[in-house]
Design a protein around this nucleic acid. Structure first.
Lengths: 78, 78
DNA sequence: CTGTAGACTAGGGTCGACG
DNA sequence: CCGTCGACCCTAGTCTACA
């Protein structure tokens, strides 16, 4: 399990908790829908600015997103 | 004040608290020294993986790095 | 609504050298 | 020990289109 894969899972989880489609989240954050798709599947590594944009769109603190990513990442250290 | 500039300041602060040179931190993290320099001056936006590497090398939680960046970023919202 | 694919541009990250 | 410069490669992120 890589960092970006853990982040992708957290991203999808929180997006769905907010009842947003990838399209809607992309629009709010000023990003591309296909890129949200790539991130959620752990195929892309967002920059710090993108992380802050996503957090804003999801009504979360960036540090909370990272904190959750960290926990998931540290679980499967295989 | 942009996100990457806030991050740069936090990065330099914590690096110096750990009494590390840019060279030493770069070596520990497997990054380039000139790139540490660029980040500290807010000229580059690291990816999530790079943030995790830096945190590891600085003996900090990635979420703590981001949390501090957040606070500094929210101070000057000019 | 989402995954994927291909083609593209901008910028992340490396490296050697010098002040 | 650090800032900078120039050259380089790779990938972040966009866009169109189709299943």
């Amino acid at each position: 399990m890589e960092v970006e894969q853990a982040f992708g899972k957290i991203l999808r989880k929180i997006r769905m908790e907010n009842s947003l489609s990838q399209e809607e989240l992309a629009y709010i954050c000023g990003l591309d829908r296909t890129y949200i798709s790539l991130m959620e599947r752990g195929k892309r590594k967002p920059t710090i600015n993108t992380i802050f944009e996503l957090a804003k769109g999801l009504d979360e603190r960036p540090s909370d997103l990272i904190s959750l990513t960290e926990e998931l990442f540290n679980l499967n250290v295989d």
